[in-house]
Nucleic acid binder design. Structure first.
Lengths: 325, 325
DNA sequence: GTTCATTACGGATTCCGTAAGGATG
DNA sequence: CATCCTTACGGAATCCGTAATGAAC
């Protein structure tokens, strides 16, 4: 058994069972791949791929298990390379972050600025998406860390660490009737169509639960992944916005008013998600510390070693005060 | 990076950092090992071993991490080989079991008999030891499964599955005063010096807790790992024995009397310990099913996938009745 | 007929083992 | 001086890529 053989198995599975495509992607010849696959199957005494004549059509049950183990092995191989690169002080692979629009637009810029200032050589990739897309990216090992706030049930296989509390504001045009009420009630809000994040409603999330508990079912005018889009429609009078407090800036949005809503909705917590039991590259840890100063290397290492968790706040030492923004 | 190189790193560490010894054990030449080690270090750009001149004296911090990951990788490689051997119906490696004397002597014989009858080709190795030795064997991947009853705190890194409840009897010579009491009290027992298992006392185990809760601190005459040894000293009048009920056989021990003690001590549970997240070979599963019929393949697979656990009974579906013996 | 995997073969590389060299205690 | 790792070198095995072959859609 050779690492190269396992690599080929993974590549062929990834390329929808095309040996040619796998060879192409690996910059090697197709007969070479074919031969190594056969050699591995001979050594193991089991067919790993289902074949229709000479065509590869899928994996056998054994192939499936081997594939899972091979992927695991390559995670570790990659960890070895990463930790060696860290130790040797070599420039390492890009830091890949997956997050939602709100984080990327409002929370991350200052962190990114500081990170790039102290780590000039490092390339930073920010992938933006909806929570389900983030979960997929993390699961396929496409990113080093995920920053998310909603739909935590999608991240059950990750180690989650809490970063800060946040809450919502009600965004209305400057001349809106609601501006007279300094502390609007849920009932008053529910009079107007709402404009909010796609993933904030449906699936019994906080907004649904809060309105539902008050016996209200507000009309959703439209949802967007993007606070800027939400603001646009609020300006057009399509409804009132419910957005993260951090995304309102009086200087940027002089025609809008933000009414506090933290008396209506309970605090949410923004989380970092990491793949458990993996080596954490130095730059990843540095980024985490810049984003959430209380997440020290020791604490993060302990959480990663402990595996997936569904109670992020429990990873903090008792008495830790989480910031809010 | 090659599997062979990682294998060499592990072997050198295992042989107390002797390259020659590692080469010997691997049936290859010493310069070959030396060269591959250097090649790996060159590729990674990090020294993995501490050297004093040309002598290997230990590992560097990076070497330590690489070593841990390499061992992990080889676990999976071994899993691939095992599952392929199972699928191909080849005879697989010996089934290695680590357990205590009481299990090996009284609980296992009938299981082993049935196992060998249905699996004629399989070699069975039973390692016997104290709980701490069992834990060490499991941790070093020397055995496939551990069967233990005491000192569960030593097995925190294993997946534990419950097999059956058991309890103790009081063993006394036929003419002993206690034989007049059909249900002796703790206080009556504590009048006499005790002879029991080494690992049953100390460290706040069940015997300590039970006597302690009654305000008693009995004198321990002697402890042994071995029920047969305990019986010998009971016969000599050195004290009264507290042993597992299953180890008393009226036919074998006509000169001894066993007084029930399950009204004094709470039931203990015998457990199987497995390394989590590892492939479970067919023969291992078969042995488990013979030993504890309620531990079905699906149930065991789910428990292994769930990782280490410290509440074995929780692995069973609700309502399962555990046998007692 | 086009696509795709297998087989065949020649060249380059890698790998292993023996032998010699140098450092350590 | 005995032990142990490193370096040097020759032979064997492996591996890769090109070309030809055969099966499938």
């Amino acid at each position: 058994m050779k690492l190269r053989q396992l690599e080929y198995v993974i590549a062929v599975a990834r390329e929808n069972f095309s040996v040619s495509a796998a060879a192409n992607r690996l910059f090697t010849s197709q007969p070479g791949v074919s031969k190594q696959l056969r050699a591995l199957e001979d050594e193991l005494g089991v067919e790993l791929f289902r074949r229709n004549g000479r065509q590869f059509t899928g994996v056998t049950p054994e192939g499936e298990q081997v594939l899972a183990l091979a992927r695991d092995i390559f995670s570790r191989v990659s960890d070895i390379r990463d930790l060696a690169a860290d130790a040797a002080g070599r420039r390492s692979r890009p830091l890949r972050i997956a997050t939602t629009h709100t984080q990327a637009r409002y929370a991350l810029p200052s962190v990114v600025e500081r990170f790039l200032a102290t780590n000039p050589g490092v390339e930073l990739n920010i992938h933006q998406g909806t929570p389900d897309q983030l979960a997929a990216l993390a699961r396929q090992h496409e990113v080093d860390l995920v920053i998310a706030t909603e739909a935590l049930e999608l991240f059950t296989d990750l180690t989650l660490l809490p970063c800060y509390y946040w809450n919502r504001v009600i965004l209305v045009p400057r001349d809106h009737p609601l501006t007279t009420a300094s502390r609007p009630t849920l009932k008053e809000i529910a009079e107007y169509p709402l404009v909010t994040y796609v993933f904030a409603v449906g699936g019994n999330r906080l907004l649904d639960r809060t309105f539902g508990a008050a016996g209200l079912s507000p009309r959703i005018a439209l949802t967007a992944v993007d606070t800027d889009v939400i603001k646009t429609y609020v300006r057009l009078g399509m409804g009132i916005g419910i957005v993260a407090g951090m995304s309102y800036d009086p200087a940027q949005d002089p025609d809008l008013v933000a009414l506090p809503a933290d008396h209506l909705f309970e605090d949410s917590v923004t989380l970092i998600g990491l793949r458990p039991s993996r080596y954490l590259r130095r730059h990843v840890q540095e980024f985490i510390s810049l984003f959430a100063a209380h997440l020290t290397p020791d604490l993060v290492a302990a959480a990663i070693a402990a595996g997936p968790n569904n109670d992020p706040l429990a990873t903090l030492p008792p008495g830790t005060e989480l910031p809010r923004r």
